[in-house]
C-alpha cells in the first residue's frame, strides 16, 4: 500500500521512433483504439439490425424465444461483467499509481470474472443443446414454440457466440497485460497497453449490456 516507487524496478521504455513525445504516442494509441472500438460497434451493429428487423416482423416469436432463455443466468452474467469492468478500471488506476501488486491482483480478478462468464455461458448453451434448441435448420425443440422460432435462436446464437469470441480475445489480452505488469513494464508514465485493453474490455461489457435485455427480457 505504499505509494513509494522504486523506479529502478521498471524497465525503461522509449517512445517509438516515429513519435516526437510520449504524449503524442499515447494520444495516437487512444484514438486508434477508439476507432477500432467503432469498427466493433459496426460489426455488432449488423447483428443488432438483423435483430430489430426480425423482431419487428415477428414480435411473438421473439417473446416466445426469450421465454426459453433463463433470465437469471443472464442477470448473473451481467453482474459478473459489470464487476469485471469495475475491477479493470481500478486496475488501470493502480497502474497509474505505480501499485504493481494491486494492479496485478485486480487484473487477474478480472480474468477470473471473464472465465466465470464463460462458464455460465457454457451451462446455458449446453442446456439449450440438450433441449434441441439449435440455430436455424438444426432447431429440433419439441415443446411449445412458434413455427419460425429457429430464427430467434439463430440471432441469439450468432450474437452471443460473436460476443463470447470477443470475451475470449479480451481475456487473452488481459492476460498479456497482466504478464507485462508482472514484469514491471508499466508505471505512471507508461501504461498505454493496460488502458487500451481496458477500453476493449469495457466495450465487451457494454455489448453484453445491450444483448442481455434485448435477448432475455423482451416481454
Amino acid at each position: 500500500m505504499s505509494s513509494k516507487v522504486d523506479t529502478n524496478k521498471f524497465i525503461p521504455r522509449f517512445v517509438s521512433h516515429h513519435f516526437s513525445n510520449a504524449d503524442q504516442e499515447f494520444e495516437s494509441c487512444k484514438l486508434g483504439m477508439w476507432l477500432f472500438l467503432l469498427t466493433e460497434f459496426m460489426l455488432f451493429g449488423g447483428i443488432f439490425v438483423a435483430y430489430v428487423v426480425f423482431r419487428t416482423w415477428y414480435p411473438e416469436t421473439f417473446e416466445s424465444g426469450a421465454e426459453k432463455l433463463d433470465w437469471k443466468m443472464g442477470a448473473v452474467n451481467t453482474v459478473i461483467l459489470i464487476t469485471s469492468s469495475v475491477t479493470m478500471a481500478v486496475a488501470i488506476r493502480e497502474v497509474q499509481l505505480n501499485r504493481k501488486g494491486r494492479a496485478l491482483a485486480l487484473l487477474l480478478f478480472t480474468v477470473l470474472c471473464g472465465m466465470g462468464f464463460l462458464v455460465v455461458k457454457y451451462f446455458e448453451y449446453n442446456h439449450k443443446f440438450e433441449l434441441g434448441i439449435f440455430p436455424g435448420d438444426f432447431f429440433s425443440f419439441m415443446g411449445d414454440h412458434m413455427s419460425n422460432e429457429h430464427l430467434y435462436f439463430s440471432i441469439y446464437f450468432m450474437a452471443t457466440a460473436t460476443h463470447v469470441l470477443h470475451v475470449i480475445l479480451g481475456l487473452l489480452a488481459i492476460l498479456w497485460v497482466s504478464w507485462r505488469t508482472a514484469k514491471g513494464e508499466f508505471y505512471e508514465a507508461y501504461y498505454t497497453p493496460v488502458e487500451m485493453v481496458g477500453l476493449y474490455w469495457h466495450l465487451v461489457d457494454l455489448i453484453w449490456i445491450f444483448l442481455f435485455p434485448l435477448l432475455y427480457l423482451t416481454k
Binding site: 415477428y58 411449445d144 414454440h145 412458434m146 413455427s147
Partner: peptide, 15 residues
C-alpha cells in the same frame, strides 16, 4: 401467414 393467428390447441403453425 399461418403463424399470424393461432387457434388454441394447435401449437405448431403450418409451414
Amino acid at each position: 401467414d399461418p403463424a399470424k393467428q393461432i387457434v388454441p390447441g394447435y401449437a405448431v403453425p403450418m409451414p
